[in-house]
Amino acid sequence: MDKLNEIIDKYRETEGALIPILQEAQEAFGYLPKDVLVGIGKGLKLPLSQIYGVVTFYSQFFLTPHGKYTIRACRGTACHVQGAKKIISTIENLINLKEGETSPDLKFTFETVACLGACALSPVMMVNKDYFGKMTPKKITTILSQY
């Protein structure tokens, strides 16, 4: 919790500090467990309900731990017309997870995203911070077998 207090202190003087604090806390702890949210509420003197409101509004925050590898498949417009649905069902099939799920051994988390911003290479997916473009079911098999 020292780490959390450090983050809160850093932003104490700033207006509108909640989101940056949540972002840094998530980076530090991997996700946002309840005691972290309670700590932020105390630190900023905000009701827990308001913090939950913000956390659940944004797709970026998560309340449960994520896997070691987060796989993000794009379902944006460019990817959609290039067959994103097939890409998504192939990934789901290979790692046996549905969208939004994390494997019990905390190896993989699978998410779909509105756009990964690499639309020229659609369909696109990401594993942690690495992009993979022009995906086909075949390529996915090769890529995922490396993890």
Partner: peptide, 10 residues
């Protein structure tokens, strides 16, 4: 830049 399919601002 929330428009899915666009990346010019990035």
């Amino acid at each position: 830049e929330g428009d899915p399919g666009a990346f010019m601002d990035r």
